[in-house]
Design a binder for these strands. Sequence first.
DNA 1: ACAGCGACTGACTGATGGGTCAGTCAGTGC
DNA 2: GCACTGACTGACCCATCAGTCAGTCGCTGT
Lengths: 237, 237
Amino acid sequence: MATERVDKKERRQELLRAARDVFARKGYHDAKVEDVCAAAGVAKGTYYLYFKDKRAVLEELVDGLFVRLAAAILRVDPGLDVPAQVQHNIRAIVAVFLDDPALTRILLSYAAGLDPAFVKKVADFYEVVRRQLGDALRDGQGLGIVAPGDADFYATLTLGALKEVLLEASSDAKPRHREEIVGKLFAFLESGYLRFALEAAPVSTPPLATAKRGSSTPQPPAVAATPRPPAVAPRKR
Amino acid sequence: MATERVDKKERRQELLRAARDVFARKGYHDAKVEDVCAAAGVAKGTYYLYFKDKRAVLEELVDGLFVRLAAAILRVDPGLDVPAQVQHNIRAIVAVFLDDPALTRILLSYAAGLDPAFVKKVADFYEVVRRQLGDALRDGQGLGIVAPGDADFYATLTLGALKEVLLEASSDAKPRHREEIVGKLFAFLESGYLRFALEAAPVSTPPLATAKRGSSTPQPPAVAATPRPPAVAPRKR
DNA sequence: ACAGCGACTGACTGATGGGTCAGTCAGTGC
DNA sequence: GCACTGACTGACCCATCAGTCAGTCGCTGT
């Protein structure tokens, strides 16, 4: 095959790009190194001149995204316009992901299925984000900007919602505009969407016992009816 | 090896349980059929007396969960106490997942990395759920129970938040009680958590406009801060 | 006692795909 | 035109497993 000689840097970029696209399309596991090479128009041996092994490309791709993310998020200064800063951060995160939909899909849907070390790396990253968000929310509670309640729980919910939206938005079929995402997500965090106007906490005995235990192993007794935790003060107007 | 002879049904269950645990621990791809057999105390050949191939167990596990889920969710009757029904559904879903934390982790974190057919099956399931939830939310909007706005977007957000919470709750380290999850999730859907006190937003100017437009394209006016609709849903004992 | 059944076994095989390396060849300097 | 470099190639090697099957063994009914 008559592959053009190109700059080393360029070849490396080409392989990275090819790997990203192939991984996004077939998933990391199903993507063969040969597929990546084919996409880059290069023989297999060449791949190993640039990357130590199969995992190395993925690692480099993901690390790059992490770095961009970390750079994009700004620490909120309580002295300034907080809502604007929050929105800025949401916007920055959305932008980083949607600037590279293929990579987004790799990270958000195909990340698993690799060796434990890599899975752990990704999990750790999310954990850090979750914790930081939790801290930020606690700060916000101090400032009266965030509703009282379990800040870590809020962080988890937010992270999950964000992941899902970004994953959906990164799929070719959904051309949701990023500014739309930012606005709607912000609105959601601000006021949810249920409008029940129900105040006091209800129901001490959930109608739950119905759930049949289809499962195999012995499981701890179903739902012990817990006393409702102090409802997250819904402070409606 | 002197494996006891047991009832066929029982052996099958044992293999299912073993597979579930091994998959949850190592991920589907890294789990070898031999690992499953070892966990079940059985030789590899035996596995193939009960399941056609490696995927078959996973499929059966996941199908089972889907069935349990479908059975648990009740169609909301607008004539009855809607909030209670919504809460019941949330509770039912949470219960199905948390009754089987290992399976939850398989579905929510290790599902990818398999062959396209299976990934598609899972994706389709979520898509159905998402769509149903979207429809339900649109119904709710008709009843004034759900805020106006993009119901599909709400559905995606909700699904993502739910997945994340369940995944976290299914990890051994976090003994979050399920009734706590139900309550807090419900509260979140009801009123979010940001409290920027930009209250009586004149419908025309969404609170978002304040933020500097750092991003790319202009956007149609996002979600208007809707005046809360007259509470249709009556009391709750 | 013994034949028959069928659950169970585990050594084996075949395919797959990550990783290697001896060899090719275009360019470059002299 | 010749020696040299180093980017590139792809046939090959080999570890890993999913899946098979000929054979074992214990139970059951007669």
